[in-house]
Design a protein around this nucleic acid. Structure first.
Lengths: 333, 333
DNA sequence: ATCGGTTATGGTATCGGTACCATATAGTGA
DNA sequence: TCACTATATGGTACCGATACCATAACCGAT
């Protein structure tokens, strides 16, 4: 391996002088700079970032720990994070937990060892001990998507979105609206459920508990939730509210198999878009701003890293938007 | 920051003894081990991976540089890589080039500085200088998806797949098959095109060059390629062969707008599946094995890192499979 | 009693860089 | 001429860990 000492020898200077050339620090005569740069080229020298980071106590790296990288929502968040980070000269280590607490914990441990400058993470349950482990080391941290007390949080208004969407369905005349919720251990799921319930309460309707069904944030879960629902519940729902986009896709596949037409036989709505359409975009949904979510969170984190911006925890709640397309219709009489 | 010296002081031993406890190396009396472990817990000590890596000359990290992380094909490859890596105790740094050579180059430079133990990458053009830069440092490298001489390659049989698929369309009676190819600077695109041409030649048909149209591996490109095609070419094609799944999605949206029905008015085929279906899966396609691709490549890389397995470059070509569904029909008379 | 091996621990140099302090020359203003 | 500053470079210690060598107690074998 070529080290700074090899370059120094070749250029006939001290190692520290080479270091100064690399970092554009201090005074260097043009002549020396040229000799050093020539030596660097000839030897194909590149500085070892490990030793630099060790000395600088800075790795210029942040961790992004998300729950499901196969969900386009999260890849878009990732884009936002990457764009904000590369602007700030930071690189991003992307990790995926599959909503598993054990994976989250082992990633955090690994990344702490690696001296990551900051953490962007999606918490899985409400256990804050992991968060404390990061905070104790005074490493900047911003939590994504899900509320958690005592920490910076950037998330969307799930409760409000669910409320508005349910309100919309009620306005179309639906009274039996099924909620295919994600795991209720996850705060986002709970918020969406409570927005749904609040909208029902607004009209003085008492929620039918058999219409609320819980499963993973996955296609297969959406599929089997619908199957279970239509197996057990009578009369069947006239509208489905999916907890997220993947659940919606699975649910729609199940509806297709059941021979039900959207929106003629049943209305379907969800959270979050899907970028792959085979025909016309038609799902009515609550649109979050995943890119903004990632971008804002990363910006906030970078502020912390640079020690700019105040330190009192903030909760940034991004607005959501109702995107009405063609997957809903009034219920059949 | 808590260092190994703090722990040593607390436990009343030398730093090196703490190091031995951490790494389970050499002899340690039970009593000392317990004292050290207690000190580690009390101080919440975690070893600094930077200094460990500097000393060990090993980071236990590999780089995975893909061309488009928003494409489900690549997220699945990533899964394969991660699974194989975590089995081997390695973590993966995921980078995304968007098919841009400049981004690829800056990532490689960054990752070389970070002392990554190995590289898995998707080359963009045929310029091998970047590859040489990695090889010169004797860092293990496996190239994904696209052939490149003198290096380990793991890829799919694009040419064979395109040939089989075109053969299938010809068998249905299609004679005007449009090819919506990806950028021809990318080897995969060229292979798919040449498989298509070979199938035409098999029947003694001379390819109509106006039916071959080139664009990015993106939805928007697929969309505009179809628009251009139907604007310019007469008579229009009876079948479309999309260069990849994203092109296919964009193309189908354009067909929808043109009021053309699949497969009644036009047949559509592509490479690679899309995991998000709103109804029944219906695209007939050439299925690669992205998970296998990632897994095999990572395994090979890990063998290199551990210096097992022979060093002569191999090219592993994974078979593809024709998945016939319902997006094709004989051409209208 | 001596030898040699196992067990247990520590001192010091080192990985590849940079911080800190020292040094030396040249140029500037009083 | 002298003090002072800007310019240019180097020596040594250090970031946090481990490699290497040394030391010492203890044990059974000779």
């Amino acid at each position: 391996m070529v080290t700074i000492r090899d370059v120094a020898k070749r250029a006939g200077v001290a190692p520290i002088t080479v270091s100064r050339v690399i970092n554009n620090a201090s005074y260097i005569s043009d002549e020396t700079r040229e000799r050093v740069e020539a030596a660097i080229k000839e030897l194909h020298y590149i500085p070892n970032a490990l030793s630099q980071s060790l000395r600088f106590k800075k790795t210029n790296t942040i961790a992004l720990i998300v729950s499901d990288i196969t969900n386009p929502f999260w890849t878009t968040v990732t884009r936002g994070v990457e764009d904000a980070s590369s602007e700030g000269g930071l690189s991003v280590i992307l990790c995926n937990t599959d909503e598993r607490q054990d994976k989250l914990e082992s990633y955090v441990k690994l990344l702490l060892q690696r001296q990551t400058d900051g953490f962007l993470l999606v918490p899985i349950n409400s256990d804050a001990s992991l968060i404390h482990r990061i905070q104790r080391r005074e490493i900047p941290l911003v939590v994504l998507d899900r509320p958690l007390p005592g920490v910076d949080v950037v998330r969307s208004d799930s409760e409000g979105g669910a409320h508005a969407m349910t309100h919309y369905l009620l306005g179309l005349g639906h009274r039996r609206i099924a909620m295919l919720t994600g795991p209720l251990t996850i705060a986002t799921s709970r918020q969406r459920l409570s927005g749904y319930q609040r909208a029902l309460n607004d009209l003085g309707l008492s929620p039918d508990e058999t219409l609320v069904i819980e499963g993973q944030f996955k296609q297969e879960a959406g599929y089997s939730m619908v199957k279970t629902l239509f197996d057990r519940v009578n009369p069947p729902p006239t509208a489905l509210f999916a907890g997220n986009n993947l659940i919606a896709v699975g649910a729609m596949r199940a509806l297709y198999e059941l021979g039900l037409n959207i929106p003629d036989d049943i209305s379907v709505v969800t959270f979050d878009d899907l970028p792959f359409f085979f025909g016309q975009p038609f799902l009515t949904l609550v649109a979050q701003s995943p890119y903004q979510l990632g971008w804002r969170a990363a910006k906030r984190l970078i502020d912390h890293i640079n020690d700019t911006g105040d330190r009192t925890p903030i909760e940034l709640v991004l607005p959501v938007e109702l995107t009405v397309r063609s997957s809903c219709a009034p219920p059949k009489p």
